Simulated scan of single mutants.
Amino acid sequence: MSASPFVLPPAPDTLEVGTDRLRLRPFVETDLDAMAAYRGDAEVCLFLPFEPQTPADIRGRIGHLFGGTNLEGERGGVVLVIEHVSDGQVIGDLVLFHLDPEAGAAEIGWVVSPAASGRGLATEAVRALVDTAFRVYGLRRLTARIDPENVRSVALAERVGMRREAHFVENEWFKGRWSDELRFALLARDWTPTS
């Protein structure tokens, strides 16, 4: 097997992404209470790999990524809060992580407040993250892992153009049950950039 020809461009020093209604930016300490409002909701956490979180839990889990824009390294990743431009409210967060630099691939994930549902904000935010992953970070492949019972996230992955590549049946003991896992993916060459 030969070495991969893929080379990542340097990570940006700062990162902020704007859409018509949203601003995606690295999270800071002052976002913890707003994040805990939705990450502390048991319904929101039903399909997430953590139980409801307090500000201290969030700091412990992803605090090393405060303000970070670098995907590389053992603990690398990028967490961006989703801020609604009209009122400055943090309505969710996005993650780009599990970088495979030789394959130019990473995983994406999202957590969005139920208060923001039904207005297309999650779709707008995830499209902006996908666009950033391909355009800014130079990635060539993105994946997402979703429990098939999480119908909103499945629909969101499909809305942004991700294709279902695999369905693993009862592959993991998760929150008291054997859960299935869907794997979605998207290649840069199949992506239609946002305007």
Results as ranks from 00 to 15, higher is better:
2 S>K: 14
2 S>I: 11
7 V>Q: 15
8 L>D: 01
8 L>W: 07
10 P>Y: 08
11 A>W: 04
15 L>C: 03
15 L>F: 02
19 T>F: 06
20 D>S: 13
22 L>F: 03
22 L>Y: 02
30 T>N: 10
35 M>S: 11
36 A>F: 06
38 Y>W: 12
38 Y>R: 10
47 F>I: 00
49 P>T: 09
52 P>G: 09
53 Q>P: 05
58 I>P: 03
62 I>K: 01
63 G>D: 06
64 H>K: 12
68 G>C: 08
68 G>L: 05
69 T>L: 01
71 L>D: 04
71 L>T: 06
75 R>D: 12
76 G>D: 09
78 V>H: 03
87 D>Q: 05
87 D>T: 06
91 I>N: 14
93 D>N: 15
97 F>E: 11
97 F>A: 15
99 L>K: 06
109 G>L: 03
110 W>A: 13
112 V>Y: 02
113 S>V: 06
115 A>F: 04
115 A>G: 05
116 A>F: 07
118 G>E: 08
119 R>W: 02
119 R>L: 05
123 T>E: 12
124 E>R: 07
133 A>C: 03
147 D>N: 14
148 P>F: 02
149 E>N: 13
152 R>I: 01
153 S>Y: 13
158 E>A: 15
162 M>N: 08
166 A>I: 05
166 A>V: 06
167 H>M: 10
168 F>P: 00
173 W>C: 01
179 S>M: 08
188 A>K: 15
195 S>L: 10
